[in-house]
Simulated assay, not measured.
Amino acid sequence: MNTDKISFTVEEAALATGMNRSRLYQAIGKHQLKTFKAGRRRMVSRKALEEFIAKLERESSKGAA
């Protein structure tokens, strides 16, 4: 998969992050992961994925401290 892309379908985002689609759709539903529509396709920008993962890392490190 080309990880130089700047946007991904949810399925591609799942592959790129190692998370499953259900987890990403759950995050989208809770407004934790920003998405946009391109025609009928739901897309996730690289920036939104990076921000989402950074937030998960911050939350995880708070619990470990």
Rank of each mutant, 00 (worst) to 15 (best):
A14G: 06
E11N: 13
K5V: 06
N2Q: 11
K47P: 12
E59Q: 06
I53W: 00
R58Y: 13
R46M: 08
T3V: 13
M1I: 05
G29V: 03
E51Y: 12
M19H: 07
V44C: 11
E57C: 02
E12C: 08
T17A: 06
M43P: 11
A64T: 13
K47V: 09
A54Y: 00
I53V: 10
L24G: 01
K37C: 04
Q26R: 10
R23Q: 15
A48W: 01
A64I: 11
A64K: 05
I53S: 13
K37F: 06
A16R: 04
G39R: 01
V10H: 07
I53L: 12
S61Y: 10
A16C: 03
T9A: 10
S61N: 09
K34H: 12
R42F: 03
F36M: 07
F36K: 04
A38M: 14
K30S: 08
I6H: 11
I53F: 01
R23L: 14
I53K: 03
A16L: 07
S22V: 12
V44G: 08
N20S: 10
E59P: 00
M19G: 00
L49A: 12
L15D: 14
K55G: 05
A54F: 04
E50S: 10
R23T: 15
K34R: 15
I28P: 05
A54T: 06
E11F: 09
A65Q: 11
M43H: 05
K5T: 10
K62G: 13
A27Y: 00
G63A: 11
S61K: 03
G39Q: 02
A54Q: 09
R23P: 01
A54C: 05
I28E: 02
S7W: 08
S7N: 09
S7T: 11
G39L: 05
F8R: 05
S60Y: 15
F8G: 10
V10L: 07
Q26D: 12
E50F: 03
A16Q: 03
R23I: 13
E12H: 02
G39F: 02
E57F: 01
K5F: 15
G18H: 01
K34E: 03
I53D: 14
G39I: 01
E50I: 14
R46Y: 12
R40K: 14
G29K: 09
R40N: 02
S60G: 12
E51V: 08
A64H: 15
D4E: 15
A14E: 03
A54I: 02
S7V: 06
M1W: 08
L49P: 15
M43R: 01
F52C: 04
S45L: 07
A64L: 14
K37L: 09
T35V: 03
L24D: 00
R23C: 15
M43Q: 01
